[in-house]
Amino acid sequence: MTEHQPSVLVLDLTMAGQSSLPSIPDLLAASPGTRILILTTQEDPAFARAALRIGAAGYLLKEAAAEELVGAARQVAKGATYLQPAMGARPAIADTGAPGTDGDASLTARELQILSLRAPGHTNQEIARRLHVSVRTVETHRARIRDKLKAETRAELIAAARERGLLG
């Protein structure tokens, strides 16, 4: 990496069957201006905390990469820390035991993200712009959220989400 000085390095958490976490300090030392975004299948929040603690600037699950990778890389490149929103929500949701938090009724990472933006009143266009996706993608996710939470109006949606501990 000393030959190239990328602004963002997307690093798989597991390479050649081993954790890449121990390599993060060496990578940062070799290229101090490079920000590291971890891309992984590892859903355990402890791995995310460990990666961020030793210098990674972001943590993204591969399941969301198609929708979130570009936006995450942009945030990291700007100096922000990126943690996939559902990483923090998963343990909290699992601990509630609330109806609709398992099986088909559970919300995906992107659905949780859209729900958290929709609740305060952001429009589909604003959400699409913020998440770097199309308006149609936002509409599709909103429809799935409504189906899963069995809510038609925005007020019903917010009430159902609060009952399940998905919103503060």
Rank of each mutant, 00 (worst) to 15 (best):
Y82H: 06
T108P: 10
T41Q: 11
I38T: 09
S19T: 09
A128W: 04
I114Y: 04
G100Y: 02
A143L: 13
Q5S: 15
A105G: 11
I93H: 05
A56Y: 01
R144F: 01
Q113F: 06
Q113W: 11
E3G: 14
T81L: 12
A94R: 13
D147L: 14
R35V: 03
L61H: 03
P91W: 02
D12E: 07
K78T: 05
L37A: 04
P91I: 07
G58I: 05
P85T: 05
R53G: 03
S7G: 10
A159F: 06
P45V: 15
D147E: 12
L131F: 07
A50R: 15
L117N: 06
I24A: 10
S31C: 13
A98R: 14
A57H: 13
L149G: 00
T41C: 04
P85Q: 02
D44Y: 02
A73R: 14
R90W: 03
L69M: 11
E43Y: 07
E3I: 08
T81E: 01
A66V: 10
A159W: 05
G168V: 08
E156W: 07
G58E: 00
E3N: 11
T34A: 12
A160T: 05
E3C: 10
P99A: 12
T101N: 15
E63D: 10
Q75E: 06
A57Q: 13
T153M: 08
A46S: 12
A151W: 14
L112N: 14
A119V: 09
L39C: 13
M87G: 01
T2H: 07
D95G: 11
P91T: 06
R162D: 01
R162W: 00
K150H: 10
K62H: 10
F47G: 07
L37R: 09
R35N: 12
L83M: 02
L13W: 11
M1D: 05
M15Y: 13
A160G: 06
D102Y: 09
Q75F: 00
A72T: 07
T96M: 05
Q18D: 08
S31Y: 03
A48P: 00
P99H: 10
H132E: 12
T41R: 14
E67R: 15
S116Y: 02
Q113S: 07
A160D: 01
D104W: 14
E68F: 06
A89V: 11
L13E: 06
M1I: 06
G58L: 01
S7T: 10
T2P: 00
R154P: 01
L107S: 01
E156I: 10
D95T: 10
I36C: 00
G121M: 14
V138R: 13
D95V: 08
E126A: 15
D104Y: 12
R162P: 03
E67Y: 08
R129Q: 13
V10D: 00
A64H: 15
T101Y: 04
S19G: 08
A159N: 09
G88H: 05
A16G: 03
A105M: 11
L13T: 11
Q42C: 05
I158S: 02
A72G: 02
T108F: 02
R146Q: 13
